[in-house]
Design a binder for these strands. Structure first.
Lengths: 343, 343
DNA sequence: ATTAGCACTCTCCCTATGAGAGTGCTAATA
DNA sequence: TATTAGCACTCTCATAGGGAGAGTGCTAAT
């Protein structure tokens, strides 16, 4: 069924009122607050139709109405009015970011900003290092039998890993190895995900007959098995959940708590949405995760030097101020992109 | 007032019963379950005295009794029977640790083990790098204007920091600097907290007149302002809170949630207890933190190569199985010490 | 097409009530 | 003197009833 203009207006009013008060919305509330010049009976009739079409639902037969996930989806796609951050807010965000000179700090600051500004949970997915060209590799002996491997990508990301080696470290060999690798890296662009295969192939050509090949081979394999595939996530503002009446019910709180406990699940979810469009909104049961059925997630991708790197987002009850969540998420992801590109 | 033997027995019974059922303990429950060969009236009288002396309290006038913080403290100090982990459990712990080959992984595994085994929140305070002798410093240029500083301590801990420098990097100078520093480090033991002062003093002697002194000085200062003072904490099992009836009350849940949200507070608290004895138990209001008033914290220090490094612990409601919490925390801290010493 | 009017439903809050659990006190008992 | 049986008392908890109020769906009138 196609919604007529009046139904759209009423749906938007219900979404707005419910967001504001967290109470089911009655026809008289709509009539009073939103000045539609309609009687409550008429509004009631439209709401009845909206309910028949799954845009609204009632907790019980004689109560006001609450938007369904479908109702929120229609609102987000067709009805909501874009929100713009005030200049003052923008300045404050920039001010806070000024203190973040390091990568880790920038991640933390971002999740804190998101949670403070939205009263929801701030989520930051650390850069996913797929599709990054490797620029340089360094081996640093640390201690007796350990080597710190440092991989630098063209986007300026630095991955590190400490590898244990059996036997003592021959510095000349290590230098030879790193010179060899770096010369190969200079010759052609090698994606970090292919690093292992390509380099080991190249190595095989020149040292396959040497007695210590296996040793080097294993060492490099371990070096490259680095954590670029790890789903590092920064979360902030879990306590904000308690501010929302929907999470007074223990089982609902339980769901979302188990979601933010398993950071991997959240990370994988967000990663699954990467690459389609900058901003993505997932409302309640639209997510396949049962833990997310009472929540919405607004994510926005950030980039480093123009190359999509990761995503930030906010997680809260489906009853949220979508326009504002979106504008905050988008603005902060832009600023984060700038900062990470400069680092 | 000195507690007589019977009062001690009854107090221990109350603690045990309340831990088991989470219900206020009545005189008849004690008589039935703990076979003291006393009438309920007698037990009632003793409980009355225990209450007068602040070892027990009643939620309301005609209800059973609950231990106070003081009651728990007396139980922990004087009454409880040490618990020993079963060999099977020990083997399982060792088995799980076998997979942890890296530092970060060991930290995470530890917090997970703690929370899984105790149904409470597992806490791991990463090694605090005070009192560590610096063995070696390396500078690795990464990208154009950045240098990765690697500090290796005698305990084998590796701290890293990326420092931005203005202008291009002169590799010879960098080599000279690192050689100079490492020779000083070889000469005498320098504690990581003194690194800055001592080295800068030494440097001053030889290059104070050189034109780029300030530049080097600032660079080093930033390098050494490394995160050994950071309170890195690993938490796991927040969701376990929901299993405990005491946290059904929203405001109590609120308190503890805000505690685990502010990881720094928790870290600082635990750090404050370091260095006195291996295992430390903080019960409810014994902590100055109002957020901890409904919780107990059991911590146990771990070491690296015999040198105290950090602490692990569990955080849960004051109503907890203290003997078991202690034995688990202590056993895991021992295992963690072994693993970190080998890494 | 819209709306006034109304019967109907459901929640919420208040009260009352009674059962049950558990206590403190007192007087009897070993 | 220490212990205990007995009992009055207090408080919680579950249940039920009832009335006010909010909000609906439907119908008939405009």
């Amino acid at each position: 069924m196609e919604l007529n203009e009046r139904m759209k207006t009423i749906l938007a009013a219900v979404v707005h009122s419910y967001f504001t008060t967290a109470e089911p919305v009655s026809s008289s509330i709509i009539a009073q607050k939103y000045h539609l010049n309609l009687s409550t009976a008429t509004i009631r009739h439209e709401m009845y139709l909206l309910e028949k079409n799954d845009y609204l639902w009632q907790p019980h037969i004689s109560s006001g109405r609450i938007p369904t996930d479908k109702g929120y989806r229609f609102y987000v796609d067709n009805l909501m009015v874009k929100n713009y951050l005030q200049e003052k807010e923008k300045r404050e965000i920039i001010q806070i970011y000024k203190k973040s000179k390091e990568f880790e700090e920038a991640m933390k600051t971002t999740s804190q900003l998101l949670s403070k500004l939205t009263d929801n949970i701030g989520v930051v997915l650390a850069p996913v290092i797929y599709n990054n060209i490797v620029k340089e590799i360094q081996f640093v002996p640390v201690g007796n039998n350990r080597i710190l491997t440092v991989i630098v990508t063209d986007a300026g990301l630095v991955c590190q890993k400490i590898v244990n080696v059996s036997g003592e470290i021959n510095k000349d060999r290590l230098n030879y190895l790193s010179n060899f690798i770096n010369s190969k890296l200079a010759e052609k662009d090698i994606d970090i995900t292919n690093l292992n295969n390509i380099l080991l192939d190249e190595l095989e050509k020149i040292i396959s007959l040497q007695e210590r090949f296996n040793y080097v081979y294993n060492f490099l394999e371990e070096c490259f098995n680095i954590r670029y595939s790890e789903n590092k996530v920064y979360l902030d503002g879990r306590i904000n959940l308690m501010k929302h009446p929907e999470f007074k019910e223990t089982d609902k709180l339980n769901y979302i708590l188990s979601l933010i406990e398993e950071e991997n699940i959240l990370a994988t979810t967000i990663r699954g949405y990467l690459g389609f469009r900058k901003t993505k909104i997932i409302i309640g049961k639209e997510s396949k995760l049962k833990e997310m059925q009472n929540c919405s997630l607004v994510t926005s991708e950030y980039s480093i030097k123009g190359k999509s790197a990761g995503a930030i987002g906010i997680l809260g009850p489906t009853r949220m101020d979508y326009p504002r969540m979106i504008s905050i998420t988008e603005y902060i992801s832009d600023k984060l992109s700038e900062i990470l590109s400069e680092l």
